[in-house]
Amino acid sequence: VTVHVDGVEYDFDNPEEALKFAKKVAEDKNGTYEVHGNQIRVT
Rank of each mutant, 00 (worst) to 15 (best):
V1F: 15
V1I: 13
V1H: 09
V1M: 14
T2W: 05
T2E: 03
T2R: 10
V3S: 00
V3P: 00
V3W: 00
V3L: 02
H4P: 00
H4I: 15
H4V: 15
H4G: 03
V5R: 01
V5K: 01
V5S: 04
D6G: 09
G7A: 05
G7H: 05
G7I: 02
V8D: 07
V8W: 10
V8Y: 11
V8T: 09
E9L: 13
E9F: 12
E9P: 10
E9G: 10
E9S: 14
Y10I: 07
Y10S: 02
Y10H: 08
D11G: 13
D11K: 15
D11M: 15
D11Y: 15
D11T: 15
D11I: 15
D11A: 15
F12D: 00
F12V: 00
F12K: 00
F12L: 02
D13G: 09
D13V: 10
D13W: 09
D13S: 12
D13K: 11
N14S: 13
N14R: 07
N14A: 06
N14Y: 06
P15V: 15
P15I: 15
P15C: 14
P15G: 09
P15W: 15
P15T: 11
E16S: 07
E16M: 07
E16A: 08
E17M: 06
E17L: 08
A18W: 01
A18D: 02
L19F: 08
L19K: 04
L19I: 11
L19T: 04
L19V: 07
K20N: 13
K20V: 07
K20G: 08
K20I: 11
K20F: 06
K20C: 14
F21H: 05
F21T: 03
F21C: 10
F21P: 03
A22G: 03
A22M: 02
A22E: 02
A22S: 02
A22Q: 01
K23H: 06
K24I: 09
K24R: 09
K24P: 00
V25E: 10
V25C: 14
V25P: 00
V25L: 12
A26L: 07
A26I: 06
A26M: 05
A26F: 03
E27Y: 11
E27T: 11
E27G: 11
D28V: 10
D28C: 13
D28Q: 14
K29D: 07
K29W: 15
K29P: 03
K29E: 09
K29A: 11
K29F: 15
N30F: 06
G31E: 04
G31W: 12
G31V: 06
G31D: 04
T32E: 09
T32Q: 12
T32S: 14
T32H: 13
Y33N: 02
Y33K: 02
E34L: 07
E34F: 09
E34K: 05
V35P: 03
V35D: 04
V35N: 04
V35W: 11
V35H: 07
V35K: 07
H36S: 12
H36Q: 13
H36C: 10
G37A: 07
G37V: 05
G37D: 08
G37W: 03
G37C: 11
G37I: 05
N38S: 10
N38E: 04
N38V: 05
N38P: 05
Q39I: 14
Q39E: 12
Q39F: 10
Q39D: 10
Q39S: 11
I40D: 01
I40S: 01
I40A: 00
R41W: 15
R41Q: 11
V42S: 01
V42D: 01
V42H: 01
T43S: 12
T43F: 13
T43D: 08
